[in-house]
Design a protein around this nucleic acid. Structure first.
Lengths: 188, 188
DNA sequence: GAAATTTTGGAACGATCAGTCAATATCCCG
DNA sequence: CGGGATATTGACTGATCGTTCCAAAATTTC
Protein backbone atom coordinates (compact mmCIF):
# COMPACT_ATOMS: atom_id res chain seq x y z
CA UNK A 1 0.00 0.00 0.00
CA UNK A 2 1.20 3.42 -0.86
CA UNK A 3 2.87 5.96 1.37
CA UNK A 4 0.38 8.73 2.14
CA UNK A 5 1.28 12.35 1.39
CA UNK A 6 3.26 13.99 4.14
CA UNK A 7 1.73 17.41 3.76
CA UNK A 8 -1.74 18.75 4.41
CA UNK A 9 -3.09 19.80 1.03
CA UNK A 10 -5.26 22.59 2.42
CA UNK A 11 -2.48 23.96 4.61
CA UNK A 12 -0.16 23.97 1.62
CA UNK A 13 -2.84 25.62 -0.47
CA UNK A 14 -3.32 28.32 2.17
CA UNK A 15 0.40 29.01 2.11
CA UNK A 16 0.29 29.28 -1.69
CA UNK A 17 -2.69 31.61 -1.34
CA UNK A 18 -0.69 33.96 0.86
CA UNK A 19 2.04 34.12 -1.79
CA UNK A 20 -0.44 34.75 -4.62
CA UNK A 21 -2.21 37.46 -2.60
CA UNK A 22 1.05 39.32 -2.02
CA UNK A 23 2.62 38.96 -5.44
CA UNK A 24 -0.10 37.95 -7.86
CA UNK A 25 0.21 35.11 -10.32
CA UNK A 26 2.95 36.46 -12.59
CA UNK A 27 4.94 37.79 -9.66
CA UNK A 28 5.06 34.46 -7.82
CA UNK A 29 7.65 31.91 -8.92
CA UNK A 30 7.35 28.17 -8.44
CA UNK A 31 10.31 28.46 -6.08
CA UNK A 32 8.47 31.10 -4.00
CA UNK A 33 5.47 28.80 -3.84
CA UNK A 34 7.22 25.56 -2.92
CA UNK A 35 9.28 27.37 -0.28
CA UNK A 36 6.14 28.87 1.31
CA UNK A 37 4.22 25.62 1.04
CA UNK A 38 7.05 23.62 2.57
CA UNK A 39 6.89 20.94 -0.10
CA UNK A 40 9.09 19.76 -2.95
CA UNK A 41 8.65 20.77 -6.55
CA UNK A 42 7.65 17.23 -7.37
CA UNK A 43 4.85 17.33 -4.81
CA UNK A 44 3.55 20.63 -6.15
CA UNK A 45 3.31 19.32 -9.70
CA UNK A 46 2.04 15.95 -8.59
CA UNK A 47 -0.73 17.33 -6.35
CA UNK A 48 -1.79 20.47 -8.19
CA UNK A 49 -0.73 19.88 -11.78
CA UNK A 50 0.95 23.13 -12.61
CA UNK A 51 1.22 26.71 -11.39
CA UNK A 52 -1.98 27.86 -13.11
CA UNK A 53 -4.00 25.03 -11.61
CA UNK A 54 -2.53 25.82 -8.20
CA UNK A 55 -3.69 29.41 -8.63
CA UNK A 56 -7.15 28.21 -9.64
CA UNK A 57 -7.33 25.98 -6.56
CA UNK A 58 -6.13 28.82 -4.35
CA UNK A 59 -8.72 31.21 -5.76
CA UNK A 60 -11.50 28.63 -5.39
CA UNK A 61 -10.62 27.97 -1.76
CA UNK A 62 -10.08 31.64 -0.90
CA UNK A 63 -13.35 32.67 -2.57
CA UNK A 64 -15.30 29.90 -0.85
CA UNK A 65 -13.88 30.90 2.53
CA UNK A 66 -14.58 34.60 1.99
CA UNK A 67 -18.13 33.96 0.81
CA UNK A 68 -18.77 31.66 3.76
CA UNK A 69 -17.47 34.31 6.16
CA UNK A 70 -19.52 37.01 4.44
CA UNK A 71 -22.66 34.89 4.71
CA UNK A 72 -21.95 34.10 8.34
CA UNK A 73 -21.50 37.79 9.09
CA UNK A 74 -24.65 38.62 7.16
CA UNK A 75 -26.67 36.23 9.31
CA UNK A 76 -25.47 37.82 12.52
CA UNK A 77 -27.38 40.18 14.74
CA UNK A 78 -31.00 40.63 15.76
CA UNK A 79 -31.84 42.88 12.81
CA UNK A 80 -31.01 42.31 9.15
CA UNK A 81 -29.17 45.62 9.01
CA UNK A 82 -26.87 44.36 11.77
CA UNK A 83 -25.70 41.64 9.40
CA UNK A 84 -24.96 44.20 6.70
CA UNK A 85 -22.93 46.25 9.16
CA UNK A 86 -21.04 43.22 10.43
CA UNK A 87 -20.26 42.11 6.90
CA UNK A 88 -18.78 45.53 6.11
CA UNK A 89 -16.98 45.48 9.46
CA UNK A 90 -15.08 42.36 8.49
CA UNK A 91 -14.30 43.86 5.08
CA UNK A 92 -12.85 46.90 6.88
CA UNK A 93 -10.88 44.69 9.23
CA UNK A 94 -9.12 43.03 6.33
CA UNK A 95 -8.88 46.10 4.10
CA UNK A 96 -5.15 46.55 4.54
CA UNK A 97 -4.44 43.01 3.35
CA UNK A 98 -4.26 42.07 -0.31
CA UNK A 99 -7.38 40.38 -1.61
CA UNK A 100 -6.87 37.45 -3.99
CA UNK A 101 -10.27 38.00 -5.60
CA UNK A 102 -9.59 41.64 -6.42
CA UNK A 103 -6.06 40.80 -7.51
CA UNK A 104 -7.34 38.10 -9.84
CA UNK A 105 -9.75 40.52 -11.52
CA UNK A 106 -7.00 43.11 -11.92
CA UNK A 107 -4.51 40.62 -13.28
CA UNK A 108 -6.82 38.56 -15.49
CA UNK A 109 -10.12 40.42 -15.94
CA UNK A 110 -12.32 37.77 -17.52
CA UNK A 111 -9.63 36.30 -19.76
CA UNK A 112 -9.46 33.02 -17.80
CA UNK A 113 -12.83 31.24 -17.91
CA UNK A 114 -11.78 28.82 -15.17
CA UNK A 115 -11.20 31.78 -12.86
CA UNK A 116 -14.23 33.76 -14.05
CA UNK A 117 -16.49 30.79 -13.30
CA UNK A 118 -15.35 30.78 -9.69
CA UNK A 119 -15.82 34.52 -9.30
CA UNK A 120 -19.25 34.63 -10.97
CA UNK A 121 -20.59 31.79 -8.84
CA UNK A 122 -19.36 33.40 -5.63
CA UNK A 123 -20.75 36.80 -6.56
CA UNK A 124 -24.14 35.31 -7.39
CA UNK A 125 -24.31 33.50 -4.06
CA UNK A 126 -23.39 36.61 -2.13
CA UNK A 127 -25.74 38.80 -4.18
CA UNK A 128 -28.65 36.46 -3.54
CA UNK A 129 -28.00 36.38 0.19
CA UNK A 130 -27.55 40.14 0.34
CA UNK A 131 -30.76 40.74 -1.60
CA UNK A 132 -32.68 38.52 0.80
CA UNK A 133 -31.23 40.23 3.83
CA UNK A 134 -31.85 43.66 2.34
CA UNK A 135 -35.48 42.67 1.86
CA UNK A 136 -35.70 41.81 5.53
CA UNK A 137 -34.06 45.11 6.39
CA UNK A 138 -36.68 46.87 4.32
CA UNK A 139 -39.41 45.07 6.28
CA UNK A 140 -37.72 46.18 9.50
CA UNK A 141 -37.59 49.79 8.32
CA UNK A 142 -33.79 49.97 8.13
CA UNK A 143 -33.52 50.14 4.33
CA UNK A 144 -35.62 52.36 2.07
CA UNK A 145 -38.76 50.46 0.99
CA UNK A 146 -38.60 51.44 -2.69
CA UNK A 147 -35.00 50.42 -3.18
CA UNK A 148 -34.24 47.64 -5.69
CA UNK A 149 -32.60 45.01 -3.47
CA UNK A 150 -30.74 43.52 -6.43
CA UNK A 151 -29.12 46.86 -7.19
CA UNK A 152 -28.47 47.47 -3.52
CA UNK A 153 -26.81 44.06 -3.22
CA UNK A 154 -24.59 44.82 -6.24
CA UNK A 155 -23.75 48.16 -4.67
CA UNK A 156 -22.58 46.55 -1.44
CA UNK A 157 -20.59 44.01 -3.43
CA UNK A 158 -18.92 46.88 -5.31
CA UNK A 159 -18.23 48.60 -2.00
CA UNK A 160 -16.02 45.67 -0.96
CA UNK A 161 -13.15 46.25 -3.43
CA UNK A 162 -13.60 49.97 -2.90
CA UNK A 163 -12.93 49.59 0.80
CA UNK A 164 -10.11 47.12 0.30
CA UNK A 165 -8.33 49.32 -2.22
CA UNK A 166 -8.72 52.27 0.16
CA UNK A 167 -7.19 50.14 2.91
CA UNK A 168 -4.25 49.16 0.74
CA UNK A 169 -3.71 52.80 -0.09
CA UNK A 170 -3.28 53.46 3.60
CA UNK A 171 -6.71 54.56 4.81
CA UNK A 172 -6.97 54.21 8.57
CA UNK A 173 -9.66 52.51 10.62
CA UNK A 174 -11.68 55.70 11.09
CA UNK A 175 -11.64 56.45 7.37
CA UNK A 176 -12.68 52.91 6.53
CA UNK A 177 -15.44 53.13 9.13
CA UNK A 178 -16.73 56.28 7.43
CA UNK A 179 -16.69 54.52 4.04
CA UNK A 180 -18.75 51.65 5.42
CA UNK A 181 -21.22 54.02 7.08
CA UNK A 182 -21.71 55.98 3.88
CA UNK A 183 -22.22 52.77 1.94
CA UNK A 184 -25.07 51.84 4.26
CA UNK A 185 -26.36 55.39 4.25
CA UNK A 186 -26.93 54.95 0.50
CA UNK A 187 -29.56 52.36 1.30
CA UNK A 188 -31.58 54.43 3.71
CA UNK B 1 25.00 68.22 -32.42
CA UNK B 2 23.29 65.02 -31.55
CA UNK B 3 20.88 63.00 -33.60
CA UNK B 4 17.35 63.66 -32.34
CA UNK B 5 15.17 60.81 -31.11
CA UNK B 6 13.04 59.23 -33.78
CA UNK B 7 10.14 58.50 -31.48
CA UNK B 8 7.72 60.66 -29.49
CA UNK B 9 8.39 60.01 -25.80
CA UNK B 10 4.81 60.59 -24.67
CA UNK B 11 3.34 58.48 -27.45
CA UNK B 12 5.75 55.68 -26.55
CA UNK B 13 4.87 56.08 -22.89
CA UNK B 14 1.15 55.84 -23.68
CA UNK B 15 1.79 52.61 -25.55
CA UNK B 16 3.72 51.25 -22.57
CA UNK B 17 0.84 52.32 -20.33
CA UNK B 18 -1.60 50.23 -22.35
CA UNK B 19 0.62 47.19 -21.91
CA UNK B 20 1.03 47.73 -18.16
CA UNK B 21 -2.73 48.23 -17.75
CA UNK B 22 -3.47 44.92 -19.45
CA UNK B 23 -0.76 42.77 -17.92
CA UNK B 24 0.56 44.58 -14.89
CA UNK B 25 4.24 45.10 -14.16
CA UNK B 26 5.36 41.50 -13.64
CA UNK B 27 3.26 40.24 -16.52
CA UNK B 28 4.73 42.66 -19.06
CA UNK B 29 8.08 41.77 -20.60
CA UNK B 30 10.55 44.23 -22.05
CA UNK B 31 9.85 42.64 -25.41
CA UNK B 32 6.11 43.29 -25.01
CA UNK B 33 6.85 46.87 -24.12
CA UNK B 34 9.34 47.67 -26.89
CA UNK B 35 7.06 46.01 -29.46
CA UNK B 36 4.08 48.12 -28.34
CA UNK B 37 6.14 51.27 -28.06
CA UNK B 38 7.66 50.79 -31.52
CA UNK B 39 11.19 51.41 -30.29
CA UNK B 40 14.35 49.38 -29.77
CA UNK B 41 15.32 48.04 -26.42
CA UNK B 42 18.34 50.34 -26.35
CA UNK B 43 16.01 53.31 -26.72
CA UNK B 44 13.83 52.05 -23.91
CA UNK B 45 16.76 51.74 -21.52
CA UNK B 46 18.34 54.93 -22.74
CA UNK B 47 15.20 57.06 -22.39
CA UNK B 48 13.52 55.52 -19.36
CA UNK B 49 16.35 53.83 -17.48
CA UNK B 50 14.85 50.45 -16.78
CA UNK B 51 11.52 48.66 -16.69
CA UNK B 52 10.63 49.86 -13.18
CA UNK B 53 11.34 53.48 -14.07
CA UNK B 54 9.25 53.09 -17.21
CA UNK B 55 6.39 51.82 -15.05
CA UNK B 56 6.82 54.76 -12.68
CA UNK B 57 6.71 57.18 -15.62
CA UNK B 58 3.65 55.44 -17.03
CA UNK B 59 1.84 55.58 -13.69
CA UNK B 60 2.74 59.26 -13.22
CA UNK B 61 1.44 60.20 -16.64
CA UNK B 62 -1.67 58.01 -16.39
CA UNK B 63 -2.51 59.33 -12.92
CA UNK B 64 -2.00 62.94 -14.00
CA UNK B 65 -4.26 62.42 -17.00
CA UNK B 66 -6.97 60.69 -14.97
CA UNK B 67 -6.90 63.34 -12.27
CA UNK B 68 -7.07 66.10 -14.87
CA UNK B 69 -10.05 64.43 -16.53
CA UNK B 70 -11.74 63.88 -13.15
CA UNK B 71 -11.26 67.53 -12.25
CA UNK B 72 -12.53 68.67 -15.64
CA UNK B 73 -15.63 66.49 -15.24
CA UNK B 74 -16.12 67.77 -11.70
CA UNK B 75 -16.16 71.35 -12.95
CA UNK B 76 -18.85 70.61 -15.50
CA UNK B 77 -22.52 71.47 -15.25
CA UNK B 78 -24.54 74.31 -13.79
CA UNK B 79 -24.82 72.67 -10.35
CA UNK B 80 -22.02 71.14 -8.30
CA UNK B 81 -23.88 67.83 -8.15
CA UNK B 82 -23.80 67.73 -11.95
CA UNK B 83 -20.02 67.58 -11.77
CA UNK B 84 -20.17 64.69 -9.33
CA UNK B 85 -22.50 62.82 -11.66
CA UNK B 86 -20.36 63.50 -14.70
CA UNK B 87 -17.24 62.37 -12.87
CA UNK B 88 -18.93 59.07 -12.01
CA UNK B 89 -20.27 58.85 -15.55
CA UNK B 90 -16.76 58.86 -16.96
CA UNK B 91 -15.71 56.27 -14.38
CA UNK B 92 -18.60 54.08 -15.52
CA UNK B 93 -17.69 54.61 -19.17
CA UNK B 94 -14.21 53.23 -18.56
CA UNK B 95 -15.17 50.60 -16.02
CA UNK B 96 -14.61 47.67 -18.33
CA UNK B 97 -11.03 48.73 -19.04
CA UNK B 98 -8.16 47.92 -16.72
CA UNK B 99 -7.09 50.79 -14.53
CA UNK B 100 -3.36 51.27 -14.02
CA UNK B 101 -3.87 52.99 -10.68
CA UNK B 102 -5.96 50.14 -9.25
CA UNK B 103 -3.61 47.58 -10.76
CA UNK B 104 -0.61 49.29 -9.18
CA UNK B 105 -2.22 49.18 -5.73
CA UNK B 106 -3.12 45.51 -6.17
CA UNK B 107 0.32 44.57 -7.41
CA UNK B 108 2.44 46.72 -5.11
CA UNK B 109 0.30 48.04 -2.27
CA UNK B 110 2.57 50.63 -0.66
CA UNK B 111 5.78 48.66 -1.06
CA UNK B 112 7.19 51.04 -3.70
CA UNK B 113 7.58 54.56 -2.26
CA UNK B 114 8.16 56.04 -5.71
CA UNK B 115 4.75 54.73 -6.77
CA UNK B 116 3.00 55.51 -3.48
CA UNK B 117 4.14 59.13 -3.72
CA UNK B 118 2.40 59.50 -7.08
CA UNK B 119 -0.79 57.88 -5.84
CA UNK B 120 -0.98 59.86 -2.60
CA UNK B 121 -0.47 63.18 -4.36
CA UNK B 122 -3.15 62.42 -6.94
CA UNK B 123 -5.61 61.26 -4.31
CA UNK B 124 -5.05 64.38 -2.22
CA UNK B 125 -5.65 66.63 -5.22
CA UNK B 126 -8.85 64.84 -6.16
CA UNK B 127 -10.03 64.70 -2.55
CA UNK B 128 -9.55 68.44 -2.12
CA UNK B 129 -11.42 69.24 -5.32
CA UNK B 130 -14.22 66.82 -4.44
CA UNK B 131 -14.54 68.26 -0.94
CA UNK B 132 -14.83 71.77 -2.35
CA UNK B 133 -17.42 70.72 -4.89
CA UNK B 134 -19.36 68.77 -2.27
CA UNK B 135 -19.45 71.91 -0.15
CA UNK B 136 -20.98 73.77 -3.06
CA UNK B 137 -23.48 70.96 -3.55
CA UNK B 138 -24.43 71.27 0.10
CA UNK B 139 -25.03 75.00 -0.40
CA UNK B 140 -27.21 74.16 -3.40
CA UNK B 141 -29.19 71.62 -1.40
CA UNK B 142 -28.07 68.59 -3.39
CA UNK B 143 -25.93 67.03 -0.66
CA UNK B 144 -26.98 66.60 2.98
CA UNK B 145 -25.85 69.67 4.96
CA UNK B 146 -24.46 67.80 7.96
CA UNK B 147 -22.27 65.48 5.89
CA UNK B 148 -18.49 65.63 6.39
CA UNK B 149 -17.27 66.60 2.94
CA UNK B 150 -13.87 65.05 3.58
CA UNK B 151 -15.45 61.69 4.32
CA UNK B 152 -17.83 62.09 1.40
CA UNK B 153 -14.91 62.84 -0.91
CA UNK B 154 -13.08 59.74 0.32
CA UNK B 155 -16.24 57.75 -0.22
CA UNK B 156 -16.52 58.85 -3.85
CA UNK B 157 -12.84 58.10 -4.37
CA UNK B 158 -13.41 54.61 -2.97
CA UNK B 159 -16.40 54.21 -5.26
CA UNK B 160 -14.11 54.53 -8.29
CA UNK B 161 -12.23 51.22 -7.90
CA UNK B 162 -15.49 49.64 -6.79
CA UNK B 163 -17.14 50.59 -10.06
CA UNK B 164 -14.10 49.68 -12.12
CA UNK B 165 -13.78 46.24 -10.56
CA UNK B 166 -17.50 45.68 -11.13
CA UNK B 167 -16.99 46.63 -14.77
CA UNK B 168 -14.06 44.25 -15.13
CA UNK B 169 -16.22 41.53 -13.64
CA UNK B 170 -18.72 42.05 -16.43
CA UNK B 171 -21.30 44.43 -14.98
CA UNK B 172 -23.28 46.09 -17.75
CA UNK B 173 -24.02 49.76 -18.31
CA UNK B 174 -27.32 49.65 -16.42
CA UNK B 175 -25.72 47.96 -13.42
CA UNK B 176 -22.90 50.46 -13.38
CA UNK B 177 -25.41 53.29 -13.65
CA UNK B 178 -27.20 51.93 -10.59
CA UNK B 179 -23.91 51.74 -8.67
CA UNK B 180 -23.17 55.38 -9.46
CA UNK B 181 -26.67 56.46 -8.49
CA UNK B 182 -26.46 54.66 -5.17
CA UNK B 183 -23.08 56.19 -4.50
CA UNK B 184 -24.58 59.65 -4.91
CA UNK B 185 -27.65 58.64 -2.96
CA UNK B 186 -25.35 58.05 0.02
CA UNK B 187 -24.66 61.76 0.08
CA UNK B 188 -28.24 62.94 0.14
C1' DG C 1 10.38 -8.45 3.64
C1' DA C 2 8.38 -6.67 -0.34
C1' DA C 3 5.40 -3.75 -3.00
C1' DA C 4 4.02 0.69 -3.65
C1' DT C 5 4.36 5.27 -3.18
C1' DT C 6 6.46 9.61 -1.53
C1' DT C 7 10.26 12.56 -0.81
C1' DT C 8 14.55 14.64 -1.89
C1' DG C 9 17.21 17.48 -4.60
C1' DG C 10 20.17 17.82 -8.43
C1' DA C 11 20.10 18.12 -13.33
C1' DA C 12 18.14 19.31 -17.42
C1' DC C 13 15.09 21.30 -20.93
C1' DG C 14 13.52 24.99 -23.80
C1' DA C 15 12.08 29.39 -23.19
C1' DT C 16 12.13 33.85 -21.48
C1' DC C 17 13.77 37.34 -18.52
C1' DA C 18 16.06 42.34 -17.79
C1' DG C 19 19.65 44.60 -19.22
C1' DT C 20 24.30 45.30 -21.99
C1' DC C 21 27.28 45.61 -25.93
C1' DA C 22 29.25 46.84 -30.28
C1' DA C 23 28.63 47.85 -35.02
C1' DT C 24 26.27 50.76 -37.96
C1' DA C 25 23.45 54.69 -39.11
C1' DT C 26 22.16 59.35 -38.91
C1' DC C 27 21.85 64.14 -37.55
C1' DC C 28 23.75 68.68 -37.39
C1' DC C 29 27.22 72.17 -36.54
C1' DG C 30 31.52 74.34 -37.75
C1' DC D 1 32.10 67.86 -46.15
C1' DG D 2 33.85 65.83 -42.02
C1' DG D 3 33.61 64.83 -37.38
C1' DG D 4 31.40 64.67 -32.91
C1' DA D 5 27.57 63.07 -30.74
C1' DT D 6 23.75 60.44 -30.42
C1' DA D 7 20.27 56.91 -32.08
C1' DT D 8 19.22 52.46 -33.88
C1' DT D 9 19.81 47.64 -34.58
C1' DG D 10 20.05 43.15 -33.17
C1' DA D 11 23.03 39.92 -31.05
C1' DC D 12 24.50 38.78 -26.61
C1' DT D 13 24.93 37.99 -21.43
C1' DG D 14 23.93 35.84 -17.15
C1' DA D 15 20.01 34.74 -14.67
C1' DT D 16 15.61 32.92 -13.98
C1' DC D 17 11.46 30.91 -15.53
C1' DG D 18 7.94 26.64 -15.39
C1' DT D 19 8.18 22.11 -15.81
C1' DT D 20 10.07 17.40 -16.38
C1' DC D 21 13.26 13.77 -15.47
C1' DC D 22 15.93 10.88 -12.69
C1' DA D 23 17.67 7.95 -9.15
C1' DA D 24 18.47 7.15 -4.48
C1' DA D 25 16.49 7.10 -0.11
C1' DA D 26 12.61 7.00 2.91
C1' DT D 27 8.28 5.53 4.50
C1' DT D 28 3.94 3.13 4.81
C1' DT D 29 1.28 -0.94 4.90
C1' DC D 30 0.15 -5.66 3.91
Amino acid sequence: MARPKEFEKDAALDAATRVFRERGFAGSSAADLTRAMGIGRQSLYDTFGDKAQLYRAALARYTAQETEAHLAALSTGPRAVDGLEILLARVRAKAGEPCLAVGAVCEFGRTRPELTTIQVAAERALAAALAARLGEAQDEGDVAPGLDVGEAAAFLIAAIPGIRIAGRRGAGAAQLQALAELALRALR
